[in-house]
Design a protein around this nucleic acid. Sequence first.
DNA 1: GAATTCCTTTGACATAGGTCAAATAGTGAG
DNA 2: CTCACTATTTGACCTATGTCAAAGGAATTC
Lengths: 186, 186
Amino acid sequence: MDITDFLSTIVPFTDDELNDIVSHFKKETVLKNQTLVRQGEICKTLYFIEKGMGRSYYLNENGKEITQWFFGVGKFMSSVDSFFQQTPSLYYLEVLEDATLYCISKEDLDQLFAKYHKMETMGRLVTTEMLTKMVNKLNAIQFQTARERYDYMLAEFPDIAYQVPLGHIASYLGMTQETLSRIRKG
Amino acid sequence: MDITDFLSTIVPFTDDELNDIVSHFKKETVLKNQTLVRQGEICKTLYFIEKGMGRSYYLNENGKEITQWFFGVGKFMSSVDSFFQQTPSLYYLEVLEDATLYCISKEDLDQLFAKYHKMETMGRLVTTEMLTKMVNKLNAIQFQTARERYDYMLAEFPDIAYQVPLGHIASYLGMTQETLSRIRKG
DNA sequence: GAATTCCTTTGACATAGGTCAAATAGTGAG
DNA sequence: CTCACTATTTGACCTATGTCAAAGGAATTC
């Protein structure tokens, strides 16, 4: 998914606007398992995933990795709170397979927000979409059985569910790897 | 919390802008337990809570009310996804005590977003804040014990925790009323 | 292609929190 | 003040899911 195409689907930018906006993004290729942000660092970059996928996770008190979110093709990826509030990140951000990313700094993005009202609209819409998805996950986690949560995952991230290690998905869904393994069986 | 003051704390509007914006909100007084939106309806209004508090909830397959969110003084309240996407609401929205609300329709709000870039910025910031809180709740729910979740609630909504029926809070935290009752004891 | 490391499955057992039912305590209407 | 209704607490019991440990499988590395 090309970033220009993506932006066009959200808000009707003119070609000139699109060119200007996209020119502030820097294309980067990163390899599988590369860490983009560490817990405690301030996340300085917002990534658009042209190809590949990523996840955010944190380490719990026992040092176990807990996946917080998956980011698929054609989505923005970041340690959201850290990036927007410029506070230390609660999460690690990593790429799960070789990926092509479009990167923009907070300063550049803020300039685009200030320059183009439409860009600000896009920011709001993308955030709203994220919020809606977060609400869905919350509902899934809060009152559903382990099996139902897995079904939710299949519906929400069909492309991701079969391509990442079991443990990543289990922790994302708030269950143990063993439980998820048993669910997948029966 | 006055709506004018609230808006000023988020984005530096001029007095003229503030007057224009606030003139599009309609002040309303509603009584305790009044329902503002029903499940299945399209939520047409965004509310700012000057006084009082509210909650959103849904009915699960057994017809039990599950609280989805609490809205306190000085916050915007709505069935977020329904309002912004104009789709049928998954939630009921109700007022938990006599309240004073500032109401605005989707059309009026969109006009303000279009008219004032700063208003759009405000919309994005408010949504981002909501997103951050949602992420916090998700983390609390996902991997904490019932007791820890209650502690999270006390921290996040200190004003609300002691003023609403136990069952509302229990379902919000993803546990039964009985469990919450036992936690409060010991 | 053997060695090493990581990932997944399986089994036995433990437990937090759910369910159901009943008793008790609050609250508001008349 | 009393009745009726609603919210909370308590107890006995149950189950989904966690924990711990070990064995298989896959996949990278040299």
